[in-house]
Amino acid sequence: MAWRCSGRTNAELVSNLFSAGLITSPRVRDAMSSVDRANYCPSSPLAAYEDSPQPIGFGATISAPHMHASACESLLEFMPENKGACVLDIGSGSGYLTHVLANLVCGADGGGDGKVVGIDHIQGLVDMARQNMRRSAEGRRLLDSGKVELVLGDGRKGYPEAGPYDAIHVGAAASELHQALIDQLKSPGRMFIPVEGGDGWGSQWIWVVDKDKNGNVTKKKDMGVRYVPLTDAPK
């Protein structure tokens, strides 16, 4: 179904995802509608509205829109608008989902109370994400106000300086459920992370990791996926 959701414009893409039931929340629909994906697909703006991954340079990709929608839907209950929610986006790449997550916690105009940190291990992508966000007035406000912070670092270790986090999104496949990331979740909090299957066949699965108000952790194996690996920066 996902491949049928491609559109000719950002509005058409999001409308198709909503009509197909891949987006179910109006909040997610509105947050994705207000971020033009073409600003974040520098290598192929004409393909920005396809429901498929696209290369962004440095051996990285921007995930398919339906996967971004799935992540937002999964994390949504831990990202209330204008309630001071703090979110970590690991493998932030060209900055698209970081911007969408900021819209969810800060509102479409960026005026609400909340913060999103995007972390990537490639300086060129961190610089690109900043440039991409500055293509819109809303993106500039989020950056200039400090409600979005884009940093260089090893996402496998999280970013404890700004934690703990209500929600953590991981945009590349980890070799394991890194304990450092679980430790940086609030109680309650949720993480959405693709993990290598460990079966030797290259399988990957989304894991949804919940920490309850008492600090108890539960892990749920969700759908099979295909992400680039969460690795060291290229030499």
Rank of each mutant, 00 (worst) to 15 (best):
K147D: 10
L142D: 07
G93R: 11
D109C: 06
E149T: 10
N82C: 01
A129L: 05
V151N: 00
V151C: 11
G155R: 12
G118R: 05
D113K: 15
K115W: 05
V126F: 00
I119Y: 01
C86N: 10
E149L: 15
V117E: 05
M128V: 01
V87H: 01
G139E: 06
N82Q: 13
H99N: 11
V126K: 01
N82F: 01
G124I: 05
E138K: 14
R130Y: 03
A129M: 08
V151H: 05
D109T: 15
R135W: 00
D127Q: 11
A129T: 08
G118L: 07
R140M: 01
T98Y: 15
V100G: 09
D144W: 11
A129V: 01
G124F: 10
G146Q: 08
T98A: 02
A108D: 09
S136N: 03
D127N: 13
L88E: 06
C106A: 10
N82Y: 06
G114Y: 13
S92T: 15
L88N: 09
K83A: 14
V105D: 04
V116A: 03
I119G: 00
G95C: 09
K83M: 10
G95F: 07
G112P: 02
G110W: 12
V148G: 08
A85Q: 04
G155V: 06
V151A: 08
G112D: 04
M128Y: 01
D89E: 06
